[in-house]
C-alpha cells in the first residue's frame, strides 16, 4: 500500500496555493491602489492641485487595469 504522503501530488497543491495567494492578495492590492488613486484624485482636484490629481488619476487607472487584467488572465488560464 502506498503511504498517504506519496499519494498526494504535493507539487500541484503547492502550485495551487501559490497561485491562489498571488491572485487573491494581488487583486486586493491592485484594487486598493485603484481606490486610493480615485479617492486622492477627488481630493486633489477639489483643492486644484492639478499635477497631484493627475498622478493619482494615473494610479487609479493603472490599479483598475491591473485588477481587470489579473481577473481576465486567471479565467483564461483556467479555460
Amino acid at each position: 500500500m502506498i503511504p498517504p504522503a506519496e499519494i498526494v501530488d504535493w507539487e500541484a497543491l503547492l502550485d495551487t496555493g501559490i497561485a491562489a495567494l498571488i491572485a487573491g492578495v494581488g487583486v486586493a492590492f491592485t484594487f486598493s491602489l485603484a481606490i486610493l488613486g480615485a479617492s486622492r484624485f477627488i481630493e486633489a482636484s477639489r483643492d486644484q492641485r492639478t499635477i497631484e490629481a493627475g498622478a493619482f488619476a494615473l494610479l487609479g487607472v493603472v490599479g483598475l487595469i491591473a485588477t481587470a487584467a489579473a481577473i481576465a488572465g486567471g479565467i483564461i488560464v483556467i479555460a
Binding site: 500541484a12 502550485d15 495551487t16 491562489a20 487573491g24 487583486v27 486586493a28 484594487f31
Partner: peptide, 17 residues
C-alpha cells in the same frame, strides 16, 4: 471584497488542477 477575491482565487486555482 477580500473574502470574495480570496475565495475565487482558491476555487479557480484548484479547479485548474
Amino acid at each position: 471584497f477580500s473574502a470574495q477575491g480570496a475565495g475565487s482565487a482558491v476555487i479557480l486555482a484548484s479547479t485548474h488542477f
